[in-house]
Design a binder for these strands. Structure first.
Length: 467
RNA sequence: GGCGCCGUGGCGGAGUGGUUACGCAGCGGUCUGCAAAACCGCGUACGCCGGUUCAAUUCCGGCCGGCGCCUCCA
């Protein structure tokens, strides 16, 4: 039985979808004005795992992840670049897809854009005004009145009074309450805008998610996810909007992933300590995108994770061990779920405990290594199990040799490529056959200097990988 | 100021009221022409101080240290 930590209640709860066997989930996506960094990757991978595991567990999953393609930062950046908002956002949407595809993050079933749901946004805003949850402020913006929603603060555990006492609440003359937030914003000259009952304008940030979930998932759905930083105010405001507008309960389970830190500090655009996904993947220090993915799975999704090259190297070593176990084994066509699968499921059922799930894979790799010499059929069966479980985490999807022969250390490429390596290995084989070990060791040293590690097998053949 | 999280062995990182996490690194061994990989074995743990308990890293309280949200943010 799957248990997941529900941020709304602060407890681990048994997971019961609204409709048996069917899960509908929504995850907050990105604002597309720049390239995605490792922090974005973590959130997307965390919920990609949730989705994959739910499907693995037999649920039919509808997965929605939005794109925020209109907001202040986008307008500002487009103006700086002297390009249209549409050109800018499309460029970064394409880049986002490229990055996420490389990381094995499955495309959502629906990937709505805010600008594609303007009529629903306007309709919901009108409903909120009609129900007295919203008002037109003195500056023409439509504001949500937080004091009208009795449950405001339930997700983030905050009291309105405490929030008002906070020193950092912006003072805005147009608001009746400093905590009120914008639903519909009056357009300034030259800004992208849409006609509305309140004049030309554009949506505020929070209303888009409420409108898109309503359009695609209805008034109630099972899981709503996003980064911890979205818990307040974004998700709090979504609840206030959706519950007030529809009278329904919105999402049953709220899930929030922890941050990626650098030197123990949150990775963020505003701090400037961020690493872009594409820069990391292209740095030459990451053998394969799966390494970055595996690194992000090495700690629990709710806790913080510290990004560093040392961590990446350790992830590379650990994942390479799994691939090494799969090498030279043809996985069996079928396999019965064994101890590893039971442990894997138990771990994942416990609020998606990926570190423990990975430990199950490592233990399985050890079993394969022990079985491979004396019980090849057993090894083939276990290898199939390992690959299958790996697919739930989105790793172990390459061929072992292809993975292990990629380089994890930039600048140590052997000249001439793989063909040259094979030639040198053949020359070394000849020297070994003639028991000219001085020459064979010389060739091995030469290859080692180029980052190529040789492994002689019992049958006399030699395989290779990159360090 | 309000709300919340964290502190596990050299590095990461799960977990548990009494029994092996797991990986990386290290040490010893097996295998190997020598290596590599693999396998076998080994080592240094649970921030500090109290309390509860037959027993606490694991529950409770306090302290110290680190971090997050309260403003855009995955």
């Amino acid at each position: 039985m799957l248990q997941l930590f529900n941020t709304l209640t602060g407890r681990k709860e048994e997971f019961h979808p609204l409709e048996p066997g069917i899960v509908r989930m929504y995850v907050c996506g990105d604002t597309v004005y720049d390239y995605c960094h490792i922090g974005h990757a973590r959130s997307k991978i965390a919920f990609d795992i949730v989705r994959r595991y739910l499907a693995f567990s037999g649920y039919r999953v509808t997965f929605v992840r939005n794109i925020t393609d209109i907001d202040d930062k986008i307008i500002k950046r487009a103006a700086e670049n002297r390009e249209s908002v549409q050109t800018l956002t499309q460029r970064f949407i394409d880049a986002m897809h490229e990055d996420y595809d490389r990381l094995g993050i499955l495309r959502p079933d629906f990937e709505p854009k805010a600008t594609g749901h303007i009529p629903s946004i306007i309709a919901m805003t009108r409903t909120l005004i009609d129900k007295n949850y919203a008002y037109v402020a003195t500056n023409g913006d439509v504001m949500y009145s937080v004091s009208a929603f009795a449950e405001y603060g339930q997700l983030s555990g905050r009291q309105l009074g405490d929030l008002r006492a906070g020193a950092r609440v912006a003072i805005d003359e147009a608001k009746r309450d400093p905590l009120d937030f914008v639903l519909w914003k009056q357009a300034k000259p030259g800004e992208p805008s849409w006609p509305s009952p309140w004049g030309e304008g554009r949506p505020g940030w929070h209303i888009e998610c409420s409108a898109m979930t309503l359009d695609l998932l209805g008034t109630r759905f099972d899981i709503h996810g996003g980064g911890l930083d979205l818990k307040f105010p974004h998700h709090e405001n979504e609840i206030a909007q959706s519950c007030a507008a529809t009278g329904d309960r919105f999402a049953t389970y709220w899930m929030h992933n922890g941050f990626v830190n650098v030197d123990n500090e949150k990775m963020a655009k505003s701090v400037g300590n961020f690493f872009l996904i594409r820069d990391v993947l292209n740095s030459g220090r990451v053998r394969d995108p799966e390494v970055l993915r595996f690194f992000l799975l090495s700690s629990h999704y709710r806790g913080p994770i510290n990004y560093s090259l040392t961590q990446i190297e350790q992830a590379d070593a650990a994942l390479s061990r799994l691939y090494t176990a799969l090498r030279d084994i043809e996985p069996a066509a079928n396999h019965e779920p064994g101890d590893a699968t039971r442990r894997f499921k138990a771990a994942m059922d416990d609020d998606f405990n990926t570190p423990d799930a990975v430990a199950a894979l490592q233990t399985l790799a050890g079993e394969i290594n022990r079985a491979r010499a004396n019980a090849p059929q057993v090894a083939a069966t276990l290898a199939a199990e390992l690959r299958h479980l790996g697919s739930v985490l989105g790793v172990l999807q390459s061929s072992p040799d292809a993975f292990l022969r990629k380089s994890a250390s930039a600048g140590s490429e052997a000249p001439g490529g793989d063909a040259a390596i094979e030639q040198l290995i053949a020359a070394r084989q000849a020297a070994r056959k003639a028991r000219n070990f001085k020459e064979s060791d010389r060739i091995r040293d030469e290859l080692a200097a180029a980052g190529v590690v040789l492994e002689d097998k019992p049958d006399g053949s030699t395989t290779w990988r990159r360090a």
